[in-house]
Amino acid sequence: MSQVYQSDAAPQFPLPFSHAVRTGDYVFISGQVGVDPQSLVPLGDIAAETRQCINNIEAVLVSCGLTLDHIVRVATHLADMNEQSIYNEVYSQMIKAPYPTRITVGSSLGSFRIEMEAIAYAPSTRQIV
Rank of each mutant, 00 (worst) to 15 (best):
residue 27 V to N: 02
residue 7 S to N: 07
residue 101 T to L: 07
residue 64 C to R: 01
residue 34 G to Y: 02
residue 57 I to W: 06
residue 100 P to N: 06
residue 22 R to W: 01
residue 30 S to L: 00
residue 108 S to H: 12
residue 6 Q to A: 03
residue 22 R to M: 12
residue 24 G to A: 06
residue 83 E to I: 00
residue 105 V to M: 15
residue 119 I to N: 03
residue 92 S to F: 02
residue 64 C to M: 02
residue 110 G to M: 05
residue 60 V to H: 09
residue 76 T to P: 12
residue 41 V to C: 04
residue 129 V to I: 14
residue 82 N to M: 04
residue 97 A to E: 14
residue 41 V to Q: 11
residue 31 G to H: 10
residue 68 L to M: 05
residue 65 G to V: 03
residue 20 A to M: 02
residue 34 G to R: 06
residue 81 M to I: 15
residue 49 E to G: 11
residue 57 I to P: 10
residue 68 L to S: 03
residue 82 N to L: 06
residue 50 T to C: 06
residue 54 I to A: 09
residue 16 P to N: 13
residue 39 S to E: 00
residue 115 E to R: 15
residue 119 I to F: 08
residue 23 T to H: 13
residue 3 Q to H: 10
residue 100 P to W: 03
residue 102 R to W: 07
residue 50 T to V: 06
residue 129 V to R: 07
residue 39 S to D: 00
residue 50 T to E: 01
residue 35 V to S: 10
residue 129 V to Q: 06
residue 48 A to D: 13
residue 59 A to S: 15
residue 17 F to K: 07
residue 108 S to C: 10
residue 52 Q to A: 12
residue 62 V to K: 12
residue 48 A to P: 02
residue 40 L to C: 08
residue 8 D to N: 13
residue 111 S to V: 13
residue 15 L to F: 13
residue 78 L to N: 03
residue 63 S to P: 06
residue 26 Y to I: 04
residue 108 S to F: 10
residue 31 G to V: 05
residue 110 G to E: 09
residue 82 N to T: 14
residue 43 L to K: 14
residue 112 F to M: 12
residue 14 P to T: 07
residue 31 G to I: 04
residue 12 Q to I: 12
residue 108 S to P: 05
residue 124 S to I: 05
residue 19 H to A: 01
residue 109 L to K: 00
residue 98 P to K: 09
residue 6 Q to W: 06
residue 88 N to S: 14
residue 104 T to A: 12
residue 118 A to Y: 07
residue 13 F to G: 00
residue 78 L to I: 03
residue 94 M to T: 09
residue 5 Y to S: 06
residue 116 M to I: 14
residue 60 V to C: 09
residue 12 Q to H: 12
residue 117 E to D: 12
residue 48 A to L: 15
residue 71 I to W: 07
residue 36 D to C: 12
residue 8 D to G: 13
residue 114 I to P: 14
residue 35 V to N: 05
residue 2 S to M: 07
residue 102 R to I: 09
residue 3 Q to W: 10
residue 45 D to R: 00
residue 38 Q to C: 07
residue 124 S to L: 07
residue 43 L to W: 11
residue 49 E to L: 11
residue 60 V to L: 08
residue 120 A to S: 04
residue 107 S to C: 15
residue 13 F to S: 05
residue 113 R to P: 01
residue 10 A to Q: 04
residue 120 A to F: 02
residue 85 S to K: 08
residue 32 Q to A: 01
residue 16 P to Q: 08
residue 108 S to T: 14
residue 86 I to T: 15
residue 43 L to T: 10
residue 26 Y to C: 11
residue 66 L to V: 00
residue 112 F to Y: 15
residue 87 Y to V: 08
residue 52 Q to Y: 09
residue 40 L to E: 01
residue 71 I to T: 14
residue 65 G to C: 04
residue 5 Y to R: 04
residue 116 M to K: 03
residue 50 T to M: 03
residue 24 G to D: 11
residue 19 H to V: 02
residue 124 S to M: 08
residue 36 D to S: 06
residue 50 T to L: 02
residue 73 R to F: 07
residue 120 A to T: 04
residue 42 P to S: 08
residue 113 R to C: 02
residue 46 I to W: 03
residue 21 V to E: 13
residue 6 Q to T: 11
residue 8 D to R: 11
residue 104 T to D: 15
residue 17 F to E: 05
residue 116 M to P: 01
residue 5 Y to Q: 01
